[in-house]
């Protein structure tokens, strides 16, 4: 072999390849970001005026019952300039509370059982396989299931409780998978270290492994939640109401949610509705982005490098 050729290679060729590759990457990123920015700009520019109250806009100098003060708190209306998102906003908050309250114990419990306690047999593998499959089921199917199980069978009616539980089913597979990943990331040496000190398996898992995995589990849950509140289809299939002009006051109240409300408004022909729906979208976007930011913060602040 010719030794002088051993380590040689064209520098120019290498740099060219690198440049081409980087260009493609930048292009991809740019397309994604530009699209997102255009969307956000479009929505904000049409909707921001509706987010401010007439009082703030200086159109009136006193808030009265006839001049609804605030988009975020006033009721829906046939008049696009008066319609507010209050009940839908409240409905979404209700949904979030119910989803958190039911997803946390169910998701964490299932993940802890599957990852830490379940025997490795055919049944467990079957369950695991199905969890992954369930995560890919179209969301309308969950809506139909919610209709059958919660609305009809359990008799909760078309209530915010049924809606919340339907969304819980929808995100549960994702949350379980994410929580298991968080548990899996806790090194075995932690389990061994705890057991070697004379702790029981239960103590080792609940006092060392699970606390170490909590940030990862919460991150998964927040991401699941942000998916849940953006969903429209399963709620509509479940039979959520589209025109609601009261605030839900018990879990069994009828409800609507921000995405349903927006979907509804967009369907109206008058052009003023466009501004109103944009304002609703801004609110939803704000909620989603802050939840994703929260997930990021938790991950960066609390997750450990082992």
């Amino acid at each position: 072999m010719n030794n002088s050729q051993l380590l040689k290679g064209s520098k120019k060729e290498r740099e060219l390849k690198e440049l081409a590759f980087l260009t493609i990457l930048y292009l991809c990123v740019t397309v994604a970001i530009v699209t997102l920015m255009t969307l956000i700009y479009d929505v904000i520019s049409t909707g921001y005026s509706r987010l401010l109250s007439d009082y703030e806009l200086g159109l009136i100098n006193k808030v009265t019952i006839d001049n609804p003060k605030d988009f975020l708190t006033s009721l829906d209306s046939r008049d696009p300039l008066k319609a507010g998102i209050g009940p839908a906003f409240a409905g979404t908050i209700w949904l979030m509370v119910i989803v958190i309250a039911s997803t946390f114990p169910l998701g964490a419990g299932a993940a802890i059982y599957l990852q830490e306690f379940a025997p490795r047999n055919k049944l467990t593998r079957f369950i695991e396989l199905n969890l992954t499959n369930l995560a890919g089921v179209p969301s309308v199917i969950y809506g139909l299931m919610g209709l059958a199980v919660f609305v009809r069978l359990a008799g909760f009616g078309r209530s915010v409780l049924s809606g919340g539980l339907t969304l819980t089913l929808l995100i549960l597979p994702v949350v379980i998978v994410a929580s298991r990943e968080a548990l899996k990331a806790v090194p075995d040496t932690i389990r061994q270290g705890a057991l070697a000190l004379g702790s029981t398996r239960f103590q080792a898992i609940f006092r060392q492994v699970v606390p170490s995995a909590i940030p990862g589990m919460v991150t998964g849950m927040v991401l699941g939640l942000s998916r849940a509140i953006g969903e429209t289809a399963p709620l509509i299939f479940m039979g959520a109401l589209t025109y609601v002009n009261y605030y839900p006051d018990t879990p069994l109240s009828g409800f609507t949610a921000i995405p349903i409300q927006v979907y509804n408004w967009i369907g109206y022909p008058q052009s003023e509705w466009k501004d109103t729906s944009s304002a609703g979208i801004i609110l939803l976007l704000g909620l989603l982005l802050s939840m994703n930011a929260l997930a990021l913060i938790i991950r960066n602040r609390f997750e450990k490098d082992w």
Binding site: P187, T189, I190, Q192, G193, A194, A196, L197, G198, Q208, S212, K304, W306
Partner: peptide, 13 residues
Amino acid sequence: RIGMVFQKPNPFP
């Protein structure tokens, strides 16, 4: 009664 120290230090986080 019989404690163990491992090859790689494994303090709890």
